[in-house]
């Protein structure tokens, strides 16, 4: 049973990383949102599996929050935003997909190297692997934020980063529910705030390209 549980958790966490990579090479915004929904669903599965193996019922709540908010409401809301604002449907990247993918691989290698080294003292192999994967997801989310121009894609990057955080939190046994709920709510609030900002930016500049903001800061470059 123990090995079996480990394999499934490993697979779910690994597929989160995989989906992160999928998000990097999407070039349509709707496809990106769908991929993000897939990642959130996978996260819900991973957390639920942790709840089952750790016998921690409160993690089911976390899984449910992830499923409802992140896999359904947030992608749906972003779909609407994109549709209502008539945002350009292609993803505007800073560099090509290939260098980004290569950088992403480097980041995964770095996080695995680092985490396996740092947590050598920990006995739970699962927690170690989980942390390594979670750090990879976080770094890939950051990478996405850095290499995309459009505000919507940055929001997606940020949400994906949060997915990594929740994965790490679920892997560490005995995290209280309060912390998870607060994390979930902070994500939601960030989502709302960023959404409001999107509308505001759009109203002023007819675009959500964040480069447009620079001219407005009253300082010349």
């Amino acid at each position: 049973m123990q090995g079996y549980a480990f394999d499934i958790a490993h697979m779910l966490a690994g597929s989160l990383v995989l989906v992160s990579f999928m998000m990097i090479y999407q070039d349509r915004i709707y496809a990106l949102l769908n991929t993000f929904a897939l990642q959130a669903a996978l996260l819900a599965l991973a957390v639920a599996w942790q709840a089952y193996t750790q016998n921690a019922p409160h993690l089911y709540a976390t899984a449910a929050i992830a499923l409802i908010f992140k896999a359904m409401i947030v992608p749906w809301a972003l779909h609407r935003v994109v549709a209502r604002m008539g945002i350009q449907r292609t993803v505007e990247t800073v560099t090509g997909v290939v260098p980004t993918m290569l950088a992403g691989m480097g980041l995964v290698a770095l996080s695995i190297l680092l985490m396996l080294q740092l947590t050598e003292a920990a006995e739970n192999a699962l927690a170690r692997e989980d942390l390594a994967f979670a750090l990879s997801v976080i770094l890939l989310g950051l990478l996405m934020m850095v290499t995309r121009r459009n505000a919507v894609t940055q929001v997606v990057g940020f949400m994906s980063l949060e997915n990594g955080l929740i994965l790490a939190a679920a892997g560490a046994q005995g995290m209280p529910l309060v912390v998870e709920i607060s994390v979930a709510f902070s994500v939601l609030i960030a989502m709302i705030v960023i959404g409001v900002f999107l509308f505001r930016i759009r109203e002023r500049f007819d675009s959500v390209d964040i480069e447009q903001l620079d001219a407005f800061r009253g300082e010349k470059r």
Partner: peptide, 13 residues
């Protein structure tokens, strides 16, 4: 002082 938001993020990253 006059970088874009994305560049600031890149610096942090």
């Amino acid at each position: 002082q006059f970088l874009t938001i994305r560049r600031y993020l890149s610096l942090v990253f």
